[in-house]
Amino acid sequence: MTLGARLVLGVVLMVAGLLKVTRLDASIQSVRLYQILPWDVTAAVGSALPIIEIAVGLLLVTGTFVRVSAVVGSLLMLAFIIGISSVWARGINIDCGCFSPGAEVDASQTQYPLEILRDTGLLLCGAWAAWRPRSPFAVDNWLFAPVTEPAEDPDPTIADDKEPAR
């Protein structure tokens, strides 16, 4: 269960980050379109966001520091949800950015609930992984391996260097 949650959120974050990282200009522009952050801050956020997304995605997929990275991933999703809701509430049409008289508004506006639904799902994945961070195939299993009782073992360093059984 946690493995699934970890992989879903991790892969989505990595893909989202990779799509943006080669086009930082566009990434900054799209942060600006939300019109929440001050102008100068948007440049820093727009450049850093894709990299952080990739990093957190990688950590989740490999299962490294699952609790911490799941919390960061969930906070990102929460921020996106707030951003989308705020844009929706203000009636800004972000995907087209176009003046749309009357009926044409519907087509693009219906995207917002879908996007919020998607991000809520991902937020739940993150929350689950943060709540129950233990799962198979995770670096954490090695990293946080409990200290083996050195009952008869005279040299604990050797024991520690072994790959743990999965």
Binding site: T64, F65, L143, F144, A145, V147, P150, P156
Partner: peptide, 21 residues
């Protein structure tokens, strides 16, 4: 003492990997 050393090593490992990341 061995148990303490092992615990210390585990802690170092966690801090080390975390800091590197």
């Amino acid at each position: 003492a061995q148990a303490d050393a092992a615990k210390q090593q585990r802690l170092n490992r966690i801090i080390g990997v975390g800091a590197a990341i």
